[in-house]
Amino acid sequence: MAIAVIRVSLVAVGLVWVLAAQTVLAGDAQRYVKPGSQAAHSAACVEETNFMRRNHMELIKHQRDSTVHHGIRSTKHSLAGCVNCHVSVSPEGQALAINGRDQFCGACHAFSAVDVNCFGCHANVPRGGLLSPAALAAHGDATAGARPSPGQFMSDTPGPATGRAGGQ
């Protein structure tokens, strides 16, 4: 009888611990996903949250090779995407460096004592856009035909095939 009581209470204590641990995890998630960031309003990350916790570095590493060497920019596992979604904003409207010790990447990496080297080269806030303002402006121009045609290249009078190149 006494043994049974002890056993039941041990199980109960265990259950309480599990519950507590889950509460802490949920609290963690809330602490790390910054209020005000886009991620705070999303139902889910690009993959399941627990999977992302353990494997985000593998996804990013895979994507880095396919982007740098093969030019693939369409996949959802881009570091720029992480930053864009998880960056938080100061009350003054300034984006806060995501690798700061109290920010999304920085806080978790400080807790787990793992250096995050990404931001030696990568922007730690969304900066400058995926295309430059000049590219956006010129892209509009391109549809209006502002790019030189082969004939215009080298010619002084803009127009189709009137220059030396087109005339020869």
């Binding site: 920019r73 900066r127 295309l131």
Partner: peptide, 28 residues
């Protein structure tokens, strides 16, 4: 650094023919 051009200390770099424009389908 800009999001579209990661760059950092200790690396060599050079013109990449505006590779981010290439990969976004722009033509110049």
């Amino acid at each position: 650094q800009l999001t579209r051009v990661p760059r950092g200390k200790g690396c060599v770099e050079s013109c990449n023919l505006c590779v981010s424009r290439r990969d976004q389908g722009l033509d110049s």
